[in-house]
Amino acid sequence: MILSEIDIVDDISKEVFLEKYFKPQKPVLIKEFAKKWEAYDKWNLDYIYEQAGEQIVGLYDNKPADPNKATDEPVTHMKMRDYIHLIKKQPSDLRIFFYIITDKLPGLLQNFSYPDLGFKYFKRIPTLFFGGSEARVLMHYDVDLGDLLHFQFEGRKRVLLFPPEEAAFLYKVPLSVHTVYNVDYEHPDYTQFPALRYAKGYEIFMEHGDALFMPSGYWHFNRYLEAGFSVTLRSFPSSPKRLFNMLNEVFFIRYTDKIMRKLFKQKWVNYKQRKAFERSQKALDKYLKN
């Protein structure tokens, strides 16, 4: 992988953000951006423990999804307080995925304000994500194709970002929003995945209060280095073309994949993995010839 340093700023105006990052769709890391919130001191695991401790939450781990089950089915369930106690006490790969604040912890909405950066937020689904110190999130892009503002809290996290046009070198799985399961982005094997060597992206280390702007369709891999959580604010599709692509992803591609997975199970998974390798090898061959 060819990883560059991302632009890092301590603060940013709406005008600079729109001109330098939003319009050209370029990522940027804004250090301690959450400190602007009046209730910044409530963004910690202890507060979540107190406010939502009795809630039962679905948990995911680092293992590939079972082809005999839905891809979004949790591997287990646990009370929020027990989960937070676990990840604070010991290493764990368990994580919480897409915890919608408006449905499950609406009081938390009083503890932040949407940054005025010039784009329209989709305020129905600000979401939390939690992870233990061994948790990883498979390389993927968000199916709704929104622009994302991603805040990190508590522990440090490593993020890899790749523009949409790098998909051919990332072993993208057909009819999916993720890459093949067995790529180790911490110790990439370029013998097994030769195209990955030429993928151009960014490496970012996030700390408490940092905000990362991820443009629409950007591929991202998250590795929790310490127990922590994050909140993602997303925008509406900013153009008719992006809206059409989002609807196609959500209602056609996603459900076609679910139907095929239900019908053919492991055979379908194996087929998609094989096609991912074939397409990346073809892209690599073309790249090396030029």
Rank of each mutant, 00 (worst) to 15 (best):
I2C: 07
E5P: 15
D7A: 15
V9Y: 02
D10C: 10
E15F: 11
V16Q: 11
F17I: 05
E19R: 09
K20P: 00
Y21K: 00
F22C: 00
K23S: 13
K23T: 14
P24H: 10
E32D: 09
F33W: 11
E38P: 03
A39F: 10
W43C: 04
D46T: 12
Y47G: 00
E54I: 06
E54T: 15
V57T: 06
N62Y: 08
K69T: 15
A70N: 15
E73V: 01
Y83K: 00
H85W: 08
H85V: 00
K88M: 09
P91Q: 02
Y99V: 00
L105R: 05
G107C: 04
L109T: 07
Q110C: 06
F112Y: 14
D116F: 10
L117E: 00
K123H: 10
R124A: 13
I125C: 08
I125P: 02
G132R: 00
Y141W: 14
V143A: 10
G146R: 03
G155D: 03
R158W: 08
E166H: 04
E166F: 02
A167L: 01
A168T: 05
F169G: 05
L170D: 11
K172F: 06
T179N: 12
V180K: 06
V180G: 06
H187K: 07
D189T: 05
Y198A: 06
Y202E: 00
E203I: 07
F205Q: 09
L212A: 03
F213I: 02
P215I: 02
F221W: 08
N222Y: 12
L225I: 14
E226Y: 04
E226M: 11
A227T: 07
F229G: 06
V231H: 01
T232W: 04
L233K: 14
S235W: 09
F236V: 09
M246R: 13
V250H: 15
V250F: 14
F252M: 13
R254K: 09
T256G: 01
F264M: 14
W268V: 04
R274L: 08
S280Q: 06
L284D: 13
K286G: 08
Y287C: 09
Y287P: 08
L288K: 08
N290V: 14
